[in-house]
Amino acid sequence: MIHATVSLEAKGLELWYGKFQALRGISVVIPHNQITAIIGPSGCGKSSLLRCFNRMNDLIPGSRVKGEVLFDGRSIYGADVDPTEVRYRIGMVFQKPNPFPKSVFDNVAFGPRVNGIQGNLEERVEHALRRAALWDEIKDRLHKSAMQLSGGQQQRLCIARTLALEPEVILMDEPCSALDPVATLKIEDLMKSLVEEYTIVIVTHNMQQAGRVSDMAAFLMMEEDRAGTLVEYGPTAQLFTNPKDKRTEDYITGRIG
């Protein structure tokens, strides 16, 4: 099934926070222009794994990474790699909508501004907002505070903020966990339309959501020392209907987690 080219690849990835090992021996291949879901019970290291893909864990004091993460074949943890460039090309959307306490426009323009992107900023902002299916709702409120938007709008604004940088990959860390069902469906529809241009990796603890949106699914669990390991990885349909591992089956059928 994996005919698409590889976007991101983790090879024997290990992660520590101080003395605590959070991930052990993770090897996974994220295909281009598909939605890959990372699923598993709480605390199994889903978000930690996601944050390895754009070096967000670097910001946590005491974190350490072993193994490799390749992006378009190049190691993102190489000595010559600037982590800010990694984060610019691999965008991220967080669990809770976290717009800056600035105007809608300034939120979307933030990325292009700090990265010194030339060209027409208004066009770029409009394009990103259109792409995030938010333009029609807020085009008259571009210079109002982003804090006044609803939760779902705020999360789509955060997606637009990422899109303004035209990244290659978008990492989403439980993007709907703070949203109501209607807003959740809007985000899911958005993801399906974005995947034509972008590679998406989503962490979710919502099985139905993983089933609805993802092409590939990775199932993580923690071992006895609480380090997260990859139990099974494959096309979502196969993982959900015909899991190879007993633990995957137990989790999917709701027997654990």
Partner: peptide, 17 residues
């Protein structure tokens, strides 16, 4: 809040920015 810093770092901002 930490989440605002995360958002900015996630958009490729450096510490000073």
């Amino acid at each position: 809040p930490r989440s605002l810093r995360d958002a900015a770092y996630g958009l490729g901002a450096n510490r000073f920015e």
